[in-house]
Each structure stands twice: as C-alpha cells, then as structure tokens.
Nucleic acid binder design. Structure first.
Length: 652
DNA sequence: TGGGGTCCT
DNA sequence: AGGACCC
C-alpha cells in the first residue's frame, strides 16, 4: 500500500506548532449562520490506514427517511401536508417538516422558540413511538429485498448492495452499465453545516446550484490510464469502480421507489464503498435525493470536517480532541494512530483515525433482536410515592405492550426462519432508571441512576389479565425505588425496562444466531393480551409536561395519542392508505450469517499495521451469495400455520 | 433537553 | 451501574 512510514516521525512536534499556532482551521468567521468547511488543506503526514481488500468492490448504500416522524404524521393526517408542522416530545421539537424548517425550525429546538419563529406551525405530539416503529418495519421490509440490511435507529439503515451489483454486472445488458442517477459528489463541491450545534448534519453546496432545478448534477469523470493509482487524483476515476457505483446508485434509486410505493415515505440515500462514507453523503442532497461518492473524493470530503462530524466522535471525544488542538479530520490525519488511541482509548481511537481517512472496514451486519425494551416518561416534578405510582401506572402498561410486540417479532423471526417453537422473549430482568434532582439524588447534571431486579413471572405471562401483569410490574419497580430513594427525591424522569431475555428458539436447520436446545417455561403460548382499558379522566394538554404531583398522568401514551387524534377529528384508527402495500418482504436474511470475526484482540495503534493481513483475509471472502435474489423467499404452508398458531388471532 | 437504543468499562 | 455513543 502506501507505506511512507518515514514521514511519520516528525509529525508530533511540527503538528503542535502548526495547529496551535496557526489559524483556526474551521469556521473562517460566521456566528450563527451557515458554516462552510474549507477545502482540504493538504495531504497528511501520518500514513493512511490501509483499507481492507474488499474496499473497492463493496458497494454500500445508506438510507435515511427525510424528517421521519413528520412524514409519518403527514401520512396519518393529510391536513398537515404542505403546512409548517413539527413533531414534539414534551417541549422539544424532535423533527420538523420542510415547510417548518424554511421558517427556521430546527431539530431539538424548544416549542416556545418554534412558535415564536413560526406562529402557524402545527405541533403534533410524538411521544408514543408505536406508529413510527410500525412504519420503520415496513421501510426495512422493502429495503431488505435489495441486500443485507442493518438498521440504525428507526429511520436509517445501511444496505449492502454488493451482491446485487455483482449480479447485474454479471447479467450484462443495460442494467449492467447504467448512467448515474442522482448526484455525484466531486471535489468541486463544498460542504457546509447550517446548524452550529450539529456540525455533523452536513450538506453539499453545489457549485452550479443557481440553476440546479432538475436536482441532478453529475459531471462525467475523467478516466485514468490502466494501472494508475485511482486515489492519486480524486477526480480521475477507475472505470470499474465508477461503474460499480453507478450500478449501486441505480439499485438505490429503485430501493427508494420501492419504499415510497410501499409506505409513501420519501428518503435520501448515499452510495459509497463503505458504511461510514455512505452515511456521510446520504444527507448531502436531502430531501428525496441521493448522492454517490467516487472512491477518490472520499478523503477530500472528509478532511475539512470538524471531528464531531465523524461517527464515533461525540461530546466527550470532541472535547478531548479539541483540547489537544485537533479540530478537523485533517488535523487528525496529521497525528499518529497511536496518539489518537492514547487519547480516546484503543477502540474509539482506531475507529476515529480510520474515519478521518474515509476508511471503514465494518461489514453491513443485521442487528439481532434487541436486548432491552424500555418505556420512559419525563415530567416537571415527582416528589411523593403516590405520584411515583401514577407515573408507573402510565408506563408499566406501555412496557408490557412493548414486551408483547417483541414477543411477536420473535415469533416471526424464529418461526419464519425455521424454528419449531419460538422460545418467547420472556424477560428475566427489570431495570428502573430515574433522574433525581432532589436531596438524595445526583443533584445537577443530567445523569441518571438505575437499579435492577428480577422480572416478576406474572409480568411475562401473556395468559393473564393485563392489569395483573401491570400491577406485578409496578410492584416490583416500586420495591426497587423504595430501597434506592431513601432520602427524599424529586424526579424528572422515570424509565422501566425489560431485558436479559430467555434463550432463543429451537430451529430446524441450525444457523448462527439461533441457539439450539432450549425452550424454557414461563413463556405461555397464549395470546389475546389487550392493552389496559382506558381509565381516568380526559387529558388535554398535548404538549404540556405532565406534573404528577398535581395529578397529571393516568393515561398510557397510546391512549393519550388516540384521544388527541379524536380531538383533532381523526378516525383514531391506525393508518390511512399507503401503509398497507408493504407485503412481501418477509425477510429471509434476518439470520444471515454474522460473518467475520475480525479478531478483537487488543491492537493499539502500533501493532495495527502488522495485523492488517488478517483483517484482509477475514473480510475478503464475504457477502457474495448471501443475498439470494430480489424475490422474497416463500414460506412453507407448515411454517405459516405455525406462525398463526403462535401468534394467535390478530388483534388490532 | 426526548424517548428510545447500543456497547464498553 | 454508569458512561459514551447513535438516532
């Protein structure tokens, strides 16, 4: 590869002088307005960490639903479309549609400020995530037909398009060499962030934006001669790589169409050779558009970015790095890998150092079933045991509903993948978390405390009355809190969680991810758990923070949402049109081999290069053939009846 | 300053 | 159990 260990030595001293003494690399001026990140100032001194051997072949897309919660709410209530609208949780804007954004609303802004900026804005409470979870499931079902899918949060996922790209190229014909669809990021583009607090949200400033009404800008890249290093000049591209990216872009466009016809949701996408770069570029031409990143442009895109924009760098790491004068990815490229590992720890250090060079060796790997489900509410005040009980009366039924959802997902996953009996997802642990600003609490800060106990068996028992289950949950949670909150309290938030689920299902054909052997008791096959019946008085203030000391609460979030919909004159029902077309997509890939095992031995900065050969070997042989085809696998009649047996008659 | 999650220490 | 990270 690039070798060049010679240049590494002088880096440390020179770097400190240069960065500390020199001009601030980021933010050439501008308070409050858009921040434009400067161009790459030059090549680094420390060596580029090598990519794995697969890097040029792999094609990864990152998909991101635009203003997800807002779009979902617009689907549910068409009256909201075209008007400025935002989704709130308590008194925060969590997302705003584009009409509201153009009035200046931003993510995580207070509702007060939002209303000041845009008095006509419609605010919709998004504290109950149920509808968003349901939509997210359909989105993933549509995307999974195009390759292995890895979810990140509710509204984002990566899809490994490599196998489908290979298939199309092998098949020949027009689809094997399509024109580029969407944007191609070139080194002519400048990147900016319009929110000083969120430097990771970046977008491209198109040099020809003045007349970019068609939303397409893709200059034909010059070709490089045979055998030339495709990274030597970022805008001179290797034809084979460019072609694979173009095929990937075509697939991504189809995938976005598929999601849109299945759900009505619009999304943006980024197409690149690895997960990190795909994610970085997916937002460059948001909304409803996609961006492809040629291999050679990666370093140019990344280096002017503030370190905070690199995945893996949060508040803590940013502070540490900035304290040492490292503000941008380009700065990171001038220090050695071992230094970064010293500052941030080996794990984060490696990841961040790689990211600064646009290197990411992670495979797209489906997320296994969640280890925890939790429900939370926050409020202005909660100082008495009776108000604690009022909070628990709200969130305990919600947690049970989540646990049951998890059970159903597990049935679908395990029976759908060939299990004889779904083991159930009975939770063994109950965790309670809280934020206490009272005398016994942690005082200021936002830190939370937590404690856990054994999950009462009654809570797992789907065969009994929902109220008895909720009571068991509340009782156990209260016992934990009583033993922790001994010196008086003033809670701002309370969270209950269920986790440490019992072992997984028995399968016919044993595949990794599903352990054989064990089906344990307690998980009744029973069905028909209803949600807690509505109880308590009408509850108005949609966006008010509940104050349990003054009698707020008493209604689960699901019920609360239904009520607020009734008040808005909606059916109160589930989704209108558009959301039911999702059929198909019975993921056959949920249990796709979690390939690899990139040995995770302690490798710090220095041993890194020595170990690289192993990394290359283990990741050089993957993915092709894991995704069988675009046709969802049929489920046998036997399995279908098993499924309906375990799931029982559909509720809702 | 929300309501979720993950992983590491 | 708590902290850091992600959305």
């Amino acid at each position: 590869m690039e070798g060049a260990a010679s240049a590494e030595k002088r880096s440390v001293e020179d770097f400190r002088v240069r960065v500390h003494g020199g001009p601030h690399p980021l933010r050439a001026g501008s308070e409050g307005g858009a921040t434009t990140f400067g161009r790459d100032d030059d090549a680094g001194w420390a060596p580029r960490p090598p990519d794995d051997a697969n890097a040029s072949r792999r094609i990864v897309a990152h998909f991101d639903v635009d203003a997800f919660y807002s779009q979902v709410e617009e689907l549910r209530d068409p009256r909201l479309r075209g008007r400025p609208m935002a989704v709130t949780q308590k008194f925060l804007i969590v997302t705003a549609n584009y009409a509201a954004r153009s009035a200046g609303l931003k993510k995580l802004m207070s509702t007060t400020k939002a209303k000041a900026l845009c008095p006509e804005v419609a605010l919709v409470s998004g504290e109950d995530l149920t509808p968003y979870r349901a939509c997210a499931k359909k989105v993933r079902a549509a995307l999974e037909r195009f390759g292995t899918c890895e979810k990140l949060g509710l509204d984002e996922c990566w899809v490994d398009l490599t196998a489908e790209v290979d298939r199309r190229i092998a098949a020949g014909g027009p689809a094997s060499d399509p024109p580029l669809v969407g944007h191609r990021h070139s080194s002519e583009h400048v990147v900016e962030s319009d929110n000083a607090h969120r430097p990771m949200d970046i977008r491209a400033v198109d040099p020809e934006r003045t007349n970019a009404s068609d939303g397409v800008h893709h200059p034909v890249p010059p070709r490089c001669e045979d055998g030339a290093d495709p990274d030597a000049n970022p805008d001179v591209s290797d034809p084979a790589r460019e072609r694979r990216l173009r095929v990937g872009a075509a697939i991504a466009a189809e995938a976005r169409d598929a999601v849109r016809s299945a759900t009505g949701l619009r999304m943006s996408a980024g197409i690149a050779h690895n997960k990190m770069l795909a994610k970085l570029v997916s937002g460059l031409h948001k909304p409803d558009d996609q961006t492809t990143l040629p291999a050679g442009v990666a370093a140019k895109l990344v280096s002017p970015l503030p370190v905070r924009a690199l995945p893996g760098v949060g508040h803590g790491a940013e502070r540490t790095l900035v304290h040492r004068g490292v503000r941008t990815a380009a700065d990171l490229r001038r220090v050695t890998r071992s230094e970064v590992c010293e500052w941030l720890g080996p794990r984060v250090g490696r990841k961040v150092h790689d990211a600064a060079w646009g290197v990411d060796r992670e495979e797209v790997a489906p997320k296994p079933a969640p280890n925890f489900v939790t429900c939370e509410d926050s409020f202005r005040s909660c100082t008495t045991w009776s108000s604690v009980d009022a909070v628990l009366a709200v969130i305990a039924p919600d947690l049970l509903a989540r646990m049951d959802e998890e059970y159903e997902d597990e049935v679908e996953r395990t029976v759908g993948a060939g299990a004889l009996i779904p083991a159930g997802r009975a939770a063994r642990t109950l965790t309670v978390k809280w934020r206490d600003v009272g005398p016994g609490g942690k005082g200021t800060g936002w830190s939370r405390s937590s404690a856990s106990t054994t999950m009462p068996t009654l809570a797992n028992d789907r065969s009994i009355d929902a109220k008895r289950r909720a009571d068991a949950l509340r009782e156990a949670a209260t016992r934990v809190l009583r033993s922790e909150l001994t010196r008086g309290f003033d809670l701002r938030a309370l969270n209950v969680g269920a986790g440490n689920f019992e072992p997984k299902a028995v399968t016919l054909n044993k595949r990794p991810g599903v352990e054989a052997g064990c089906v344990s008791g307690s998980s009744g096959i029973d069905v028909g758990t209803g949600r807690a019946a509505p109880h308590g008085s009408a509850f108005a203030a949609m966006n008010a923070r509940r104050d349990y000391d003054r009698g707020g609460g008493r209604m689960s979030k699901t019920e609360e949402r239904a009520l607020s919909e009734r008040e808005r004159g909606l059916g109160g029902g589930v989704f209108g049109g558009g959301l039911n077309g999702g059929g198909g997509g019975e993921s056959s890939d949920v249990f796709a081999e979690p390939l690899r095992d990139q040995d995770e031995d302690e490798e710090d900065g220095d041993s890194f290069y020595a170990d690289l050969a192993d990394v290359q070997r283990s990741s050089a042989m993957p993915s092709i053939g894991r995704v069988q085809s675009l046709v969802p696998r049929k489920r046998g009649a036997e399995q279908a009846s098993l499924l309906s047996f375990f799931k029982g008659p559909s509720k809702r």
